[in-house]
Write a protein that binds this DNA or RNA. Structure first.
Lengths: 128, 128
DNA sequence: CTCCATCGTTTACAGACGTAATCGATTACG
DNA sequence: CGTAATCGATTACGTCTGTAAACGATGGAG
């Protein structure tokens, strides 16, 4: 009945950086988010505030009042984000098939020894 | 010496659709590109022309005059595009490691039987 | 109670992107 | 030869993104 959960709006790259901070630890204040991301990205607190607002508008982040300020928490799960983004890429570049992506990564030395070992283990599990 | 080949400018999603047509077959006229993509994307010829111009400006497509019109060919290789796009995603979402991406695809049933078989074969090859 | 620091909100603005219409040149057809 | 079709180039314009400053409310310090 409620009009909730329309298809989720797309999260931009800058917004994603903020989400990562919140997925790492939450709830956080805008200040705290800034402490996590402003350094690496060279952002000001104002920028983080804008991104947080946009994420709230996009329903990807929830707020909870705490005195004068807000505490922000992720509302969209990281799994969901990572899932749709990966799928987008695989669809767009590899016709939806994962094997060509894997082949590509393999060909370009983009796979470390560890990657290969891990994937091998996963494969074994999948086949069981 | 020459100022050629600065780091290539990013190709947008709409532009990418045009590139795919050219990677498939080239050289093509704007008209022919439209025949390939206008239907599926619901675009007009004008849109394709704009995208082609932008791709030429971004040095991703080369032109060769043919009477009144141009023949367009890809200048950037598909391999290169796919490579940087894949890497971007893996870096952004999986800390640069391919294994977690693979794990994610596996967990979400995003791998078909065929994918698994192919990847297995590739793995065997890699280890040799 | 007063004032300053800090919040979230609003507004700003340039560049990229999606989508196209218009325009001046040219060529092919009649 | 004239004119209609077509071409690439130019211009358009709304939205999204990145990045932030300005502003009004409020809460804490003195």
């Amino acid at each position: 009945m409620s009009d909730e959960s329309v298809q989720p709006e797309r999260i931009s790259e800058a917004e994603h950086a903020v989400m990562e901070a919140l997925w790492e630890r939450s709830p956080l204040t805008a200040q705290e988010v800034c402490e996590e991301v402003c350094g690496p990205r060279g952002w000001s607190l104002a920028t983080v505030k804008t991104l947080l607002s946009r994420l709230v508008a996009k329903q990807a982040v929830a707020t909870e009042p705490d005195g004068k300020r807000f505490l922000y928490s992720p509302k969209m799960a990281r799994e969901a984000y990572v899932g749709t983004e990966s799928r987008r890429l695989v669809d767009r570049l590899f016709g939806g098939r994962a094997a060509p992506l894997f082949a590509h990564l393999a060909q370009n030395e983009a796979l470390t020894e560890d990657d290969i070992a891990e994937i091998e283990a996963l494969l074994k599990e999948l086949k069981s």
